[in-house]
Design a protein around this nucleic acid. Structure first.
Length: 567
RNA sequence: UGGGGUGUAGCCAAGUGGUAAGGCAGCGGCCUUUGGAGCCGCCAUUCCCAGGUUCGAAUCCUGGCACCCCAGCCA
């Protein structure tokens, strides 16, 4: 975004007509009433305790997207207040993922830990005002005093310590005089509040853990509620967008900034994303990784951004998805078909078409000369003529897909069967005249066909129509490749309950070690994406190397035949 | 049975007192040298339920019901 363009007074109307949502309404209202001097400044605040998933992508698109649409800014801030769970590996992956998604925080990369000193000073201020106290209760005792959902809590016996004593104790907490968990600093609010977050919430706990950025400087660490709002305030955030479960925390968020008398951002909550056939909680994703149910955070079956990237999803398709599903406050589970459609929509326009045979069966054209190789013209992308065409070698011996031949074809089967004709894409119409089987297993090992030389694609006499067109590769020219077929991680829409791991889809990964590809693919580079005609979209996997090609299936094409056959 | 939220089609989601957008899925059809793509059509007499206000209610009022979140020194 260029920095020169902001005429402060003009209404920062979104450039394109965009989908309305309640957050835009709030922002536009705040702009109208000049609540934040016409500024819009958001932030994406991940905790670096795991890899980002597609639910985070929704939040990233929302936060960066709102900032962009209203000519504002969006910060990246790591919420790193719990060193026992956070690691540098995670911050690195998060930065990479946000960037890959297409967003830029420019020079505004922050950490809650940047504010540890300031937060400490703020805490001293609250103590001095009599609004916070050091509590000697241990965790169990604090719980006992908290009361229940229906019963008020009891005041801590340490609640009314003199300010001087609190100041002294807090200093000694910070200096490491007390063991972990023996004391906390608590806000003095209301132990009888119906909102449990207001029953004297803990602000600091004693925790001896090495922080990935501050090392061993601190042995007390701020809690989320104490750190988050103040960080927002320090960064002059206008709209602090978070998920629904923090709605109950908003009174506390507001209470802290008001007691401190500092700049007051506005917290807005929206519903987190759920997707069918997968799990989204960080806890469960971590478990899948640690227990080796998947190969890692970037396993192509994972709903993580790195998994989707490796699977072959594009940033564009993920942004399109975020846009399509919208933002609201009602709990929702989006059909994964919506995601898949976004990918197809994007790649249909961009991905080069190519022919690949995943489950090959040999096909011999009996009346085709033994030693001839024709170079046939094939269109690279019918949706985009500017992508031109390429030459594909054709010869007497080919491979076709096992699925494209049926000895006993069902009704409406348009592909090859004994005595039937089919077009070989970009080549000739052929007829099946024989089937060679393995004597022992009965398995079909070879199809014998004849071709009609008058039907060459593009030739004037090629107008003859047949019902089906199938893809093929020339056996002598084919490249060998490994193809990894991926599908939904779980067998059921909503994998819940204690047995959720038992609901995993054993078919989510299938290895095809010997697929046959047209020779064009020899130059495919990592992350290149293609449409394998009639099959789906595929990308070159990170494991791929020259001479050892590895492709991942990102998503299949829509398959009308599969539907017909099912019914 | 405390507090905070949410209920519009199979799944998302607009709608802000004037007569139910859009997308996904599904279903028909056209077209097609990808059973792809594209195109056309269908898909809520009704908005959780019941009353009420109004000429007029998904929108306002009253009373119910259902579901989600909160009792970490996690975020």
């Amino acid at each position: 975004m260029s920095s020169e363009k902001k005429t402060a007074a003009e209404t920062p109307e979104p450039a394109q007509p965009v989908r309305r949502n309640f957050i835009r309404e709030i922002i536009e209202d705040d702009l109208k009433t000049n609540r934040f001097e016409g500024r819009v400044h958001t932030r994406f605040p991940p905790e670096p305790n795991g890899y980002l998933h597609i639910g985070h992508a929704k939040s990233i698109c929302l936060n960066f997207g709102m900032a962009k649409d209203y000519k504002g800014l969006c910060n990246l801030r790591f919420d790193d207040t719990n060193p026992s769970k956070e690691e540098q590996e995670y911050v690195d992956s998060i930065e990479q993922d946000v960037r890959w998604l297409g967003f830029d925080w420019e020079n505004r990369l922050f950490y809650a830990s940047d504010y540890f000193d300031q937060l400490h000073d703020y805490a001293v201020q609250l103590i001095t005002k009599g609004k916070a106290y050091v509590c000697d209760l241990n965790a169990d005792q604090v719980r006992e005093h908290r009361g229940t959902l229906t019963q008020p809590g009891k005041d801590s016996p340490y609640r009314n310590r003199p300010v001087e004593e609190n100041l002294d104790l807090f200093r000694r907490m910070r200096e490491g005089e007390f063991p972990d968990g023996t004391r906390t600093l608590r806000a003095k609010i209301d132990m009888a509040s119906p909102n449990l977050n207001l029953r004297d919430p803990v602000m600091y706990r004693i925790l001896r853990a090495t922080h990935h950025r501050t090392g061993d400087k601190w042995c007390i660490y701020p809690m989320y509620d104490w750190a988050h709002g103040q960080s927002d305030s320090l960064e002059q955030i206008t709209h602090s967008i978070c998920t629904l479960e923090f709605e109950d925390h908003r009174p506390l968020y507001d209470w802290f900034v008001e007691q401190l008398g500092i700049y007051h951002p506005r917290q807005i909550e929206f519903a987190r994303l759920n997707l069918t056939y997968t799990v989204m909680s960080k806890r469960k994703l971590l478990q899948l990784v640690e227990e080796k149910h998947v190969t890692g955070w970037d396993d192509p079956r994972m709903p993580t951004i790195s998994g989707l990237r490796r699977r072959g999803y594009t940033p564009e398709s993920l942004r399109m998805f975020a846009d399509r599903i919208g933002v609201s406050k009602s709990e929702s589970t989006v059909d994964v078909a919506t995601l898949e459609d976004c990918l197809r929509d994007d790649l249909n326009k961009r991905a080069a078409r190519v022919m690949a045979v995943l489950n090959p069966v040999k096909l011999v054209i009996e009346n085709y000369p033994d030693d001839v190789v024709e170079e046939l013209e094939a269109v690279n992308n019918p949706e985009d003529p500017s992508k031109g065409s390429r030459k594909v070698p054709f010869s007497k011996v080919l491979y076709i897909e096992q699925d494209d031949f049926r000895e006993n074809p069902p009704k409406k089967y348009f592909r090859l069967s004994p005595g039937n004709e089919v077009r070989l894409r970009y080549a000739y119409i052929i007829k099946c005249v024989g089937v060679v089987k393995d004597e022992k297993t009965g398995e079909i090992v070879e199809l014998r066909c004849t071709y009609d030389p008058d039907t060459k694609s593009g030739s004037p006499q090629s107008a003859r129509k047949v019902k089906g067109t199938i893809h093929w590769v020339s056996a002598n020219h084919a490249l060998d490749a490994e193809v990894r077929l991926y599908d939904r991680l779980f067998r059921v829409e909503n994998p819940e309950g204690d047995n959720w791991k038992g609901l995993m889809n054993p078919e989510a990964f299938k290895l095809l070690p010997h697929c046959k590809l047209e020779p064009t693919l020899a130059i495919a580079k990592k992350q290149d994406r293609f449409q394998f005609e009639r099959l789906g979209y595929f990308c070159v996997d990170d494991d791929s190397a020259p001479g050892r090609l590895v492709f991942n299936r990102t998503v299949t094409l829509r398959d009308t035949w599969a539907k017909i056959e099912k019914s």
